[in-house]
Design a protein around this nucleic acid. Structure first.
Lengths: 338, 338
DNA sequence: TTCATCAATGCAAGCGCTTTCATATATTAT
DNA sequence: ATAATATATGAAAGCGCTTGCATTGATGAA
């Protein structure tokens, strides 16, 4: 391995001088700078980042940790990160926590925050991960947490207005003439699903719509069970809904499958709405475009990075941001006016 | 920041001893070990990875660099990486090269290979990136290159048999009774598309099938132009194909859109095949499941990591592997027997 | 001419950890 | 009891870089 020492020797200057030209300090004479640069090129020298990080306490890189990076849900978010780092002097590295395993998550965060990155952006649930929350609190790096409003954490928070998102969804259905609107909820342990649920409930109430018996379904395990919940809804003895709002598009895709399998046409026989406006859906979903509530994930990804870059470059350690992003309706082909 | 020194002081032992318990060396007495461990926990100490990397010349992490990480194409590959690292002592970090920009790629590779990872897996084209190839050749890290058979590079290579994949595709179409089979080629500057094209050409020849005038279409720019190429094919004055083989699923999805827009039913009026068996497709594709040639991307991801972990753990620096993976046919709903 | 100032460079400490080697103590064999 | 061996620990060098401080020579002011 070729080191700075080799370059210094070859150039007949001190380590310090080589370091100066590498770091583009201006107090080096033109001739020396040129010579050193030439030799660096000739020898194909590259600085060792571990040594650099140790000496400077800076790495010029930002870490991102998400659960299941392979999940198509992250598509837009990742694009945002990729884009955000463009034209900055920073690099981004991604870590994936398989299955959202808490220990793995903790270990990745500790890894990153101890000498490998200058700041980290976190997506995923952390409410219940006491250790991690405590760790983050005690660490003096810059963080941005996306969709994670943990009070005891004093860091950048980028949130999405899930509550009003659901309200938009319900009001869209109402505007299309629906009154019997059922809901398939996601895992109620997750903050986003609670917020979306509340949005639904309040929107229904505020518009004087009655939620019939059986109109509220909760997915068990994961989105797959959206299928059976839809079957449940369609088999209701009493009153059948004319529209079903789902907590996310993955669930909606399953609900649509269920409707098809029951011989129902979407949206002619039943209207279905999703949430997330996922660019790509799991399981080779091939149904109609789902009418959905979209979140500005690309922008959020972008701004996460921009925010951190700005804070790092300007040594802003303590003026954190808290921002709530609006959602918007994207009309697909799964809601009919009645 | 709390360091090993603090722990040593508090525990009344030397730095060396603390280092030993952290690294689980066995030559530390039980009492001392316990005490040190307790104090580490109490103080919430975490070792600095930069310092460690510098001292050990090992980081226990593997780097992955791909173009456009957000591309749904990587879905299965990423799952493979995630899975491969399970139950090992290694971490994986992902770097995304937006737009496949050569300079950015080079900078990420240099970054990773100088003190941040122990090995790297590369996916993307490198044939023409002389600098990078040269750099990799001169660097003594372990690499695995996926789908990149660069002769002058002596490293692990995991390849896919694109040529025979195309042959399988053509033979499937033949077995379904097709004789007039057109082809929409991908960017002929990319190795995979050349191989696939050759497979098509040879399969046609070997089966004594004639390739009519106009049956070969080349996409310009990217997969989007698959749309117009399909229109071209369907408007052929002379003879019209009964089946169209596309160089990948993204192109096929566009071809299907084109067929629809021309009022043709797939597969009743025209059969279409893709290649890649992409789990998720771009642009909210909502057509029928595409009959396609699948690649074992998950396995390739998995094995990339396993290979490297094995080589790192056993200090195998020089017995590299070269493996060619088979493809397989996945029947969808876009090919009709005639 | 002499002194203050400045630009260019080198010296050396230090970043936080690992590891070799030496040392001291405990254990076993004789 | 003594020598030989094993075990537990510490001292210190070193990993490759950055940076504050000191030094040198040159430049300009007085």
């Amino acid at each position: 391995m070729i080191t700075m020492k080799d370059i210094a020797l070859e150039a007949g200057v001190s380590l310090a001088t080589v370091s100066r030209v590498i770091n583009k300090k201006d107090n080096v004479s033109a001739e020396v700078r040129e010579k050193v640069e030439r030799i660096i090129l000739e020898q194909g020298y590259n600085p060792n980042n571990a040594a650099r990080a140790l000496a400077k306490k800076r790495t010029n890189t930002i870490g991102v940790v998400v659960n299941n990076l392979h999940d198509p849900f992250y598509h837009d978010l990742i694009r945002g990160f990729e884009d955000g780092v463009q034209n900055t002097s920073y690099k981004v590295i991604f870590c994936s926590v398989l299955g959202g395993d808490v220990d793995m998550k903790e270990s990745y965060i500790k890894y990153l925050t101890n000498g490998v990155v200058d700041a980290v952006v976190l997506y995923g649930s952390y409410q219940s991960d006491e250790n991690i929350v405590k760790y983050i609190r005690d660490t003096d790096l810059n963080y941005v947490m996306i969709e994670n409003d943990i009070k005891e954490l004093n860091c950048n928070k980028l949130l999405i207005d899930n509550y009003n998102g659901s309200i938009k969804a319900v009001e869209h259905l109402i505007s299309m003439g629906h009154r019997d609107i059922a809901y398939i909820c996601g895992n109620p342990n997750k903050k986003v699903f609670v917020e979306r649920l509340n949005g639904y409930l309040n929107a229904m109430q505020n518009n004087n719509m009655h939620i019939e018996d059986g109109f509220m379904q909760y997915t068990t395990t994961d989105y797959h069970s959206g299928y059976e919940k839809m079957i449940n809804l369609m088999n209701l003895k009493s009153k059948r809904p004319t529209a079903v709002l789902c907590a996310d598009d993955a669930i909606a895709s399953k609900a649509i499958m269920a409707a098809f399998d029951l011989g129902l046409r979407v949206p002619d026989d039943i209207s279905i709405m999703g949430y997330d406006n996922q660019t790509v859906l799991p399981d080779k979903y091939r149904g109609p475009n789902i009418t959905s509530i979209a979140q500005p994930l690309f922008e959020i990804g972008q701004e996460s990075i921009q925010l951190l870059v700005d804070q790092l470059d300007n040594n802003k350690r303590n003026d954190y941001i808290r921002k709530i992003y609006d959602t918007y309706l994207v009309e697909g082909e799964t809601v009919k006016s009645i």
